[in-house]
Design a protein around this nucleic acid. Structure first.
Length: 385
DNA sequence: ATGTGC
């Protein structure tokens, strides 16, 4: 079964594919990575692999001492957090969920909305971190206080789910906002100017490579702090509105756009994941479905050939442009008939409709050797970015 | 996904 092995081209490493359907454009992008001088062992494609700018989403690969800014995704540190609450005593009808969602929408700035004025206080360690250039320090100083605790746009979301036992879950998907974008953009330019390979990588034996690793790490810490800041407010509101307590043991957080130094195949490697999640064997993770479909709490199986990784979601099958052209708002309304959401935004939300994404159950089937599903979460209310 | 420059 999985994975399929695409034999190596001359001078390239092989590609291991966990996706039943590999879009031709994505295969081309995987072959591009596999042919880079810094790629070692093989390239792994997760089951939600799809074409993206430069490098396919769902790509995992490793280097010995190179960092490739173009292979991490623009939203560095983007990820998902989840909190479980006890089962509420009363049924959660629209009468409860609609005002709760409205409260959450007032509490959490969404889309391109930011905190006004000087913004919110940053945790001390993120107040003025040691970024590599004056330009980045300035961007951080200006953007970080305005963006901490904001959801952003695109596929970012905050939602409430229910599991089979009646527990309520808060799920949160967001990233490093403007500061991460500034950091990603800067190191992409540096790599284009002086990196190695046609998909430029920076040697971590050079100041540029070390600076890229350090700054990228800070973007990931900001992304995590952003999820924590939003959750701190949202958990309180949900607990109060539903009269249920969060279970601190239930917390799960994963990020899916990052580079990490990890031991694989007997040596330390720099594992790059663009739209993929790294999970040690037994570590819990989250795989969100598309808007209106189920998400899963999962447990990693530590498959070495996947660099101990799995998918980050359902994976797009239609681009945003294609989705706008092909999916009617009525179809999205039907798909969302059991979920409380802002119906005034149906027309623009077709880009995020379930029909624009792969079926999450097929994605999980394809990666049965990478993870074990623990709980299926059904959405009941969604706040989209 | 993003802020910014066209």
């Amino acid at each position: 079964m999985m994975p399929r092995i695409l034999p190596a081209n001359p001078g390239a490493v092989p590609i291991l594919v966990w996706a039943r359907a590999l879009p031709p454009g994505a295969e081309k992008q995987l072959r591009h990575i596999a042919a880079q001088p810094y790629a070692v062992e093989h390239v792994a494609a997760m089951p939600d692999v799809h074409v993206s700018s430069g490098v396919a989403v769902g790509t995992v690969f490793a280097t010995e001492h190179h960092v490739v800014p173009g292979a991490l995704g623009g939203d560095l540190g983007c990820g998902v957090s989840a909190y479980r609450f006890s089962a509420p005593e009363t049924p959660l009808g629209r009468d409860v969920l609609e005002p709760l969602l409205a409260r959450l929408a007032r509490l959490v700035p969404v889309g391109d909305t930011v905190h006004r004025g000087r913004g919110v206080p940053l945790p001390p360690e993120l107040e003025s971190p040691p970024l590599s250039t004056q330009k980045l320090r300035h961007a951080w100083e200006r953007l970080a206080p305005r963006h901490l605790g904001t959801l952003g746009g695109g596929n970012h979301f905050l939602e409430l789910d229910r599991d089979a036992e009646g527990h309520v879950w808060l799920l949160l998907h967001t990233g490093s906002r403007g500061v991460g974008a500034a950091i990603a953009d800067h190191h992409l330019r540096v790599a284009q100017a002086q990196g190695e390979g046609s998909l430029p990588g920076l040697s971590t034996r050079s100041p540029e490579g070390l600076a890229c690793l350090a700054d990228t790490g800070l973007a990931c810490r900001f992304a995590r702090a952003n999820r924590d800041a939003i959750a701190a407010r949202a958990v309180e509101v949900v607990a109060e509105a539903l009269g249920v307590a969060p279970d601190p043991e239930s917390f799960v957080d994963v990020h899916h756009n990052h580079v990490a130094e990890e031991p694989h195949f007997g040596r330390m490697l720099l594992v790059h994941r663009k739209g993929a999640v790294g999970l040690e064997a037994g570590q819990r993770g989250l795989i969100p479905g598309s808007m209106g479909t189920a998400s899963y709490v999962v447990e990693g199986r530590g498959e070495p050939r996947a660099f101990r990784s799995c998918s980050h979601g359902a994976g797009r099958v239609l681009t945003r442009t294609e989705a706008r052209a092909r999916i009617r708002p009525a179809a999205l309304e039907h798909a969302m008939r059991r979920v409380v959401f802002d119906q005034g935004r149906t027309a623009s939300l077709v880009e995020e409709a379930p029909a624009a994404y792969r079926d999450i159950t097929e994605v999980l089937e394809d990666e049965a050797d990478l993870l074990t599903p623990l709980r299926r979460l059904t959405p009941i209310a969604v706040l989209k970015g």
